[in-house]
Simulated scan of single mutants.
Amino acid sequence: MLVFIIRRLLQSCVVILAVSLIVFVGLYGVGDPSLLLIDPDASAAERDQAIAMLGLDKPLYAQYGTFLWNALHGDLGRSFVYNEPSISLILNRLPATLELAFVALILAVGIGIPLGLWAGLKGDGPVDRTIVTGSIFGFSLPSFWQGMMLVWIFAVLLGWLPSNGRGELGEIFGIKTSLATLDGWRHLILPAINLALFKTALLIRLTRAGVREALVLDFVKFARAKGLRENRIIGVHVLKYILVPIVTVTGLEFGQLVAFATVTETVFAWPGSGKLIIDSIYKLDRPVVVAYLMVVVAMFITINLLVDILYSALDPRVRLAEKR
């Protein structure tokens, strides 16, 4: 297992280096942020001085070399707009995004897996068809449209829930979070539901397919032949069989919830890192965009590593293949 982890860490370093090059060249080679950041009435000397202060007067390869050297020391650049370290801006906003993604994932898992299990056990009956048809809406409806409909129904028409902001914050183990207050939960419900809908539909389909596949396998037939109760067959044997792909997909989907929460955060004015990155793209704040993408890549790699370790714990065949 140790050799496996070390090899994955080395592969991760190569991936991060390659992504940093692609992201840096792709962002720094397009557009000129000085046109937005420098006063149009500034003189040529003032303009040249500002460009030099931003580091935009150097060749692209020199800028990338400086970025890599600073990144090794924990510095991912300084925001052009806010004049603060980019990593600080992102880390200040990231807890709100992680909070939203975590609640959305809990909703998706808590609803998607039971519904998928129920649909798979019912075969091609009316319950199965109803659940599968409902999951199609989760795949098909655009996230921004879902968000606007949730706002219109529950905030405008019914007036039950607020439509924007994070609400009152409380503390849990010294961490400020919306989960500690009732007002925070009221602000969190709508964006979390909007973010969870697609993932719920995905888990319904994945769980249903796994159950339908497992029910015809020999180990289930053998368990029934031994006289085991149906609840034990489903709850132990079938569920353990389908958990391997579900764990893999769930881990990757959590990374996607964090990375692609930008639409939901924009619709609900949720003060997370997704809204920050949208604002930074509009303002050509390159250091913040690059730092955000690097943080997201590092998060994906970490989640992948944890998923692989958990995968090998759930499936002994993976451990045997690793030993060979």
Rank of each mutant, 00 (worst) to 15 (best):
I136M: 12
R166N: 03
L37C: 02
N83P: 08
G125V: 11
L243W: 12
T264V: 15
L76C: 04
S43H: 01
W69R: 15
V295R: 12
P114D: 06
L56Y: 06
G251D: 01
R212F: 11
L203T: 02
A155I: 00
N70F: 08
A223T: 06
A101F: 13
A52H: 04
I234E: 05
N92C: 10
V249L: 14
L27H: 04
M1R: 09
G251N: 04
W160H: 00
G77P: 11
I246F: 02
F300Y: 13
D183P: 01
G147V: 01
A119N: 01
L54A: 10
M294A: 08
S135K: 01
F219R: 12
A313M: 15
A259R: 05
L188N: 02
I278S: 07
I38G: 02
A269E: 12
N92E: 12
G74Y: 04
A108C: 10
A192F: 04
A192H: 08
P287Q: 03
P59R: 04
G77S: 13
L314Q: 03
I111W: 02
M294Q: 15
I189Q: 05
A298C: 13
R319P: 09
L306I: 15
N92A: 14
I87Q: 07
P114W: 07
T302I: 14
L17F: 15
P85W: 07
A321M: 12
F4T: 09
V247N: 00
L228T: 06
F80K: 04
I193K: 03
F222I: 15
R93C: 07
F300L: 11
L257G: 02
R208V: 00
W145R: 02
V25L: 14
L310C: 15
L179R: 07
I277D: 03
G110M: 13
N83K: 15
L197R: 05
Q146N: 12
F4A: 14
L105D: 05
L94E: 03
S12W: 02
W270Y: 14
G110P: 04
V127W: 13
G116S: 01
S143D: 11
W152E: 11
L117T: 09
L60V: 09
I113Y: 00
G255E: 05
V216H: 08
L158K: 11
G26A: 12
L161C: 02
G65A: 15
L314K: 03
V132K: 14
I38A: 01
M299H: 09
V297N: 02
L305E: 01
V19F: 10
R317L: 13
S140Q: 08
D218G: 06
V19T: 13
S86C: 08
A96K: 08
I113Q: 01
V236Q: 14
W69Y: 11
V244R: 01
V263S: 02
V14R: 09
V267W: 06
L121R: 08
L94N: 01
L190M: 14
E46A: 05
A259I: 03
L161N: 00
I277L: 14
G29R: 09
G116K: 00
M53Q: 11
N164I: 15
L179V: 06
L179F: 12
P245E: 06
R7C: 07
I153W: 10
G125I: 13
H237E: 02
N70Q: 14
P33T: 05
I6C: 07
F300D: 03
V238L: 09
Q146D: 06
R129M: 14
L284R: 14
L21F: 15
I242Q: 00
L36N: 13
W69M: 14
L54Q: 04
I278L: 12
I90M: 08
I246L: 14
A214N: 04
